[in-house]
Every structure is written in C-alpha cells, then in structure tokens.
Amino acid sequence: MSLDTVVEDIREEADARVAEIESAAEERAEEIIREAEAEADSIRESAEREVEREIDRERDQRIASANLEAKQERLEARRELLAEVREALEERIATLPDEEREELVRELLDAAGSEFDDAATLRVSTRPEDMDLLESILEDYDGYELDGEHDCIGGVVVESDETRVRVNNTFDSLLEDVWEDNLKEISARIFEEK
C-alpha cells in the first residue's frame, strides 16, 4: 500500500468522520431548536393564559365595583326618596285641619295624663302654632297648665315636678315610632318589593 493510498484512506475516514460529526451536530442543533421552540410556545401559552386570567380578574373586579357603586347609588336614591316621603308626611301632619288637630291633641293629652298621679300638677307644652288651641283645650282639664313652646310638628309634652315624669306625646315622637316600626313595609310599598 502506498503512502498516497494511506493518506487517501485517512482523508476519506476524516471526511466521513467530519460528515458524521456535522450530521450529529445538525441533528443536535435541530433538536435544540425544536426544544427551544417548544419551550417558547409553552412560555407564550402560559403567558397568554396568565394574561387572560389577569384580564378576567380585572373585568370581574370592575364589574363587582360597578355593581357595588350601582347598589350604593340605588340605596342612596331610596334613602333620599324615603326622606322626601317622611318630610311630606311631616308637612301633612303639621298642616292638619284645626278640628282634626284638636281631636288628636285631646287624645294625646288624655293618654299622657294617665301616666301621672291624680294629685300631680301637670305642665303641658306644644308647638308655637298650637299654643292658642292648647290653651282652649286645657280649660276642660283640671290640674293642667300651659307651660310654653316645644319644638315639634304638633302634639303635647306633659311634665310634672312632683313625679319627675315627662311624657312626650308629640306627633314627631309618634311618627318616629310608627316610621321605625313600619319602615320595611313602607319601603316595600314605595319600591313595590315583595
């Protein structure tokens, strides 16, 4: 065998080995690229899912916030309407016709008087507009005296120094009791709730 043949064989072996190494390197490079692309796809999908979850969370928070704000606005509107209804009711009570007002004041005075001993001297006050009415009513009651003005929409406040009892039978206090006891029903009727 000649030296040229040996060199040629070595060269062929080297070329074959280079081709084999290049082929293996290309396969490895393609595998690395496939793995990198798969990992990139996985990262992209994961990021997209996270973005979707964040969008859903943000949307849910905004919807919840909007619902809460709308509920608060509805409640405030209801409170305002109930306040208007109450104010209108107070105005209606404050402007009752004289005959009806006198009848109610007498009933409230009788009810308050039953809370005191017969021997007590009772002082009675009312709103400024009803002072003349109360004075004429008290002419029919023994042991009662006009005490002065009371800030209210009507009715009477009866007091006695002997017993230190004070009975607030004003329209205001009665309205407050009725309003509080029936607020749920009043609200249901106004807002047509079942």
Rank of each mutant, 00 (worst) to 15 (best):
A24Y: 08
A77H: 08
D132I: 00
I93K: 02
R62A: 10
A119I: 04
R74I: 02
A47Y: 03
R57D: 10
A66M: 08
A16I: 05
E27S: 15
A70Y: 04
A16T: 07
E39L: 07
R44T: 11
L122M: 04
A24R: 13
E52W: 04
R34C: 00
V124E: 00
E102A: 14
E100G: 00
E76N: 05
Y144N: 01
V105E: 00
A38V: 00
E52N: 08
R127E: 12
S125H: 10
V18N: 01
R53V: 00
A111S: 13
A119S: 08
D41V: 11
V51M: 14
E145S: 11
R57P: 02
L96A: 03
V85W: 04
R59C: 04
S42A: 15
E35W: 06
E22V: 10
D140W: 06
A19N: 08
I137N: 02
S65E: 15
I93G: 00
R57F: 09
Y141V: 10
E107W: 12
A25T: 14
I32E: 12
L82Y: 07
E69T: 04
R49E: 11
S23V: 00
N67L: 14
D117P: 02
T95K: 10
S125L: 02
L68D: 02
E80F: 03
D118T: 01
E50C: 02
L138Y: 12
R78L: 10
S136F: 10
A24V: 04
D142K: 11
L81R: 02
E31Q: 13
R86H: 04
E45S: 12
E39C: 01
R106F: 08
E31M: 12
E84T: 09
E30C: 02
A112N: 05
A38H: 03
A16E: 13
E145G: 05
E52L: 09
A83I: 02
T121D: 12
L68R: 15
A29L: 14
D98Y: 14
L81Q: 00
S65Y: 11
S114E: 13
L68V: 10
D117W: 05
D110G: 07
E35L: 09
R123I: 10
E99F: 08
A66R: 07
F116K: 06
D147L: 09
R59H: 13
L104R: 05
L82D: 01
E26W: 05
V85L: 15
M131S: 03
E39Q: 09
S23G: 12
A64S: 05
A64F: 00
L81I: 06
A25E: 07
E20K: 09
A120T: 01
I55E: 14
A120D: 15
L134C: 02
E20R: 11
M131L: 15
E31D: 06
E90A: 08
V124Y: 07
E149Q: 12
A111I: 06
E139F: 09
R127H: 13
D132W: 01
L89D: 03
A119G: 01
S23F: 05
D56I: 07
A77V: 02
L146K: 07
E107M: 11
R17D: 11
E90C: 03
